[in-house]
């Protein structure tokens, strides 16, 4: 602690109480709007509490019955499967194009012109209101919409393709929108990671006569593994929250036959119908899954930051 003023400890201690004062707003708001809701959510999951017609049932303590019911009625598994399928359908092309684009942007030999323009364009869909984007796709891909009109004019199809009447059509649209909205973001993250790789590794590979493909698979990918893990798990956490796009696209029904209904749409349904017991049990499941995934991200990527806190150094961070 060479930087601290030498004039006695008390002054420093007197300053440091301000650390607590400055934390008050965050902690107070977090406790009220996150912690208390979390506790009430868990608490509610142990009660039978719903509307049957206009008759209020409960709240009655029923222990773990909500959990048992939500597992047994099969919906949870089905919606979890839908969510995962749509996430994977969107994530695979997303990671493929992001790796490709990231490698190109980071490649000093390739020298892509107008890289700034391309980055601006591919990041753009990430900022679009998902509800509006989904409504736009709904109108464009409607049976009488422009996409069907274009395809018919081209002679590729004779009858309009009813996207929302086919599981593949509506899941595909959701996945496609998610891909469009997120591949730019992932590209930028991966590119930042690639720029961080020690350049001497690439130079050594060049001297050894490695092709760009070899460089990508033998150097870039292995060095990128921590960031890839981070991207994948944060994307999975994001995927589990999938809501706006399928909700608006299918008017909350997950058409066809609930094949595109996601976990959060299911939660939303219970919250709207005031079935608080089931909503609570579902929330607790989601909390546990996202909690585990968060811990993995924490362990692998941000924990170093915490460990750096203790010894205060004057660093010139790059």
């Amino acid at each position: 602690m060479a930087n601290e003023p030498k004039k006695g400890k008390s002054r420093v201690v007197r300053y440091n109480k301000w650390g607590y004062i400055f934390l008050i707003p965050f902690i107070a708001v977090y406790l009220i709007f996150q912690m208390i809701p979390l506790i009430t959510t868990i608490y509610n999951s142990f009660f039978e509490n719903y509307l049957s017609g206009i008759k209020q049932i409960g709240p009655n303590w029923i222990g773990l019955n909500n959990y048992i019911e939500i597992i047994n009625n099969g919906d949870l598994i089905m919606y979890a499967k839908n969510t995962l399928i749509m996430w994977i359908l969107g994530f695979v092309p997303q990671i493929f194009f992001s790796l490709l684009l990231g490698a190109w942007f980071a490649d000093t030999r390739l020298r892509i012109r107008a890289a700034g323009f391309f980055k601006t364009v591919i990041y753009l869909p990430n900022l679009i209101m998902a509800a509006a984007f989904s409504m736009l796709f709904f109108t464009l891909f409607a049976d009488t919409g422009p996409v069907n009109a274009i395809l018919q004019n081209l002679g590729w199809i004779s009858e309009p393709y009813q996207f929302l009447s086919h599981a593949g059509g509506s899941r595909g649209l959701v996945a496609f929108m998610n891909f469009l909205m997120w591949f730019g973001n992932t590209t930028i993250l991966l590119m930042a990671g690639m720029m961080g790789i020690d350049n001497s590794l690439f130079e050594a590979a060049q001297v050894d006569g490695a092709t760009s493909t070899q460089v990508f698979f033998r150097i870039t990918l292995p060095m990128l593994r921590p960031i890839l893990l981070f991207v994948m798990i944060t994307s999975l956490i994001g995927g589990l929250q999938m809501f706006d796009v399928p909700q608006v696209l299918t008017a909350g029904d997950g058409t066809p036959a609930r094949q595109s209904m996601t976990l959060i749409m299911y939660l939303n349904k219970h919250l709207y119908s005031k079935n608080y017991g089931m909503a609570g049990a579902l929330s607790v499941f989601l909390f546990i899954i996202t909690g585990i995934l968060s811990l993995i991200v924490f362990k692998f990527s941000v924990q170093d930051n915490v460990d750096e806190v203790k010894p205060r150094r004057n660093r010139n961070k790059g």
Binding site: Q34, I39, T41, Y276, F287, Q303
Partner: peptide
């Protein structure tokens, strides 16, 4: 940092209440 990734949706029920 540990709670950074936990989505707000999982506490939505308590929040609405």
């Amino acid at each position: 940092l540990a709670v950074m990734m936990i989505p707000t949706q999982v506490t939505a029920l308590g929040f609405v209440k």
